[in-house]
């Protein structure tokens, strides 16, 4: 038994240490820092100036930050609706007995294994290109003149373009999780329904959807976490001086703390920390809401 204890401690210590170092200590320090005015990120705690909730007030008064919050809410909502509908549709199609299921599944998931910088560059420089872009070519081919003339990378369309490109890749990820959920449902349920003469639509709403409740909940939480951390795609779609329509809280924080351009002039690391606290609170609140809404206990088969 004693031997076991020694082993358990030696095995757990590195993992716990890494956790303290990279998660627990930084999270606590950031939370603490959000209540202070900190001019330079390397300033020691002694130089911090207590401002209470002042940083949060500064953020609430900043139009750019409020725009950033609005942007991620819209990404969360519109991107979320699109991604969930499409990924659910694909998951249902691919689990309905189509041939070549694993081929389709692999291709649809593919964008997730490629560097987001590469994916983003493909969209921005090729698909949306006003001269030789794929969208232009396809819409011209289909005779949709109006759509072919859309300037996707112009400031007024940039946000929509960003959401579409980002969501395109995420569909595969959520589809995989939905598929795994659907495949756990015992096939007898569907067989019984088919024998009773239920239609495909009826089977989806009466069997699949209710039994996927906890999977949907997991996906909402995962989607929220990814929306909150939205960063690279903004950078690719609007490098140098960020276009306000693509600024997310992460980008705002980056400019505030590490940036060197004109968008955010007043440097205050404490406010950057406050952005972090706000985002974490958003994740926790969304998590709590989904837990309450989808309260149903775990389904056992």
């Amino acid at each position: 038994m004693k031997k076991n204890k020694v082993m358990m401690v030696t095995f757990l210590v590195p993992a716990i240490l890494s956790y303290l170092l990279v998660f627990l200590y930084p999270t606590m320090r950031t939370t603490f820092m959000s209540l202070f005015y900190v001019e330079n990120i390397t300033d020691s705690v002694l130089k911090w100036r207590w401002v209470g909730l002042g940083n949060f007030k500064t953020l609430a008064d900043s139009t750019l930050f409020m725009q950033a919050l609005k942007n991620i809410s819209l990404i969360w909502l519109w991107g979320g609706v699109g991604v969930f509908l499409l990924s659910m549709l694909f998951a249902v199609i691919l689990t309905s007995g189509v041939k070549g299921k694993s081929f389709y599944r692999s291709i649809i998931y593919l964008p997730n294994v490629v560097s987001a910088v590469a994916m983003g560059t493909m969209w921005m420089q090729y698909v949306y290109n006003p001269k030789f872009g794929l969208f232009k070519k396809v819409f011209e081919f289909l005779g949709l003149k109006k759509l072919a003339e859309v300037q996707w990378t112009a400031p007024e369309m940039l946000f929509a373009a960003l959401v579409i490109a980002y969501s395109f890749g995420m569909v595969g990820y959520f589809m995989l999780i939905f598929m795994a959920g659907i495949e756990r449902i015992p096939p007898d349920y569907y067989e019984a329904a088919t024998m009773e003469g239920a239609s495909v639509v009826k089977k989806f709403f009466s069997i699949t959807l209710p039994l996927l409740k906890d999977v949907i909940r997991t996906n909402i939480v995962l989607w929220s976490i990814s929306a909150v951390g939205f960063f690279i795609w903004s950078q690719i779609f609007s490098p140098l001086n960020p276009e306000p329509s693509t600024v997310t809280p992460m980008v705002y924080m980056y400019q505030l703390v590490f940036g060197n351009n004109m968008v955010v002039t007043d440097r205050n690391v404490g406010a950057g920390a406050a952005v972090g606290v706000i985002l974490t609170v958003i994740v926790v609140v969304l998590f709590a809401i989904t837990t309450i809404v989808f309260r149903d206990d775990k389904i056992e088969y």
Partner: peptide, 26 residues
């Protein structure tokens, strides 16, 4: 311990980046 490790999956990078940067820079 298990819940702590799971909670880490939901912590946004922004919460950890600033202290890490200041420690590593100093």
């Amino acid at each position: 311990l298990q819940s702590l490790f799971i909670a880490a999956l939901g912590i946004p990078a922004i919460m950890i980046i600033m202290p890490l940067f200041s420690v590593i820079t100093s």
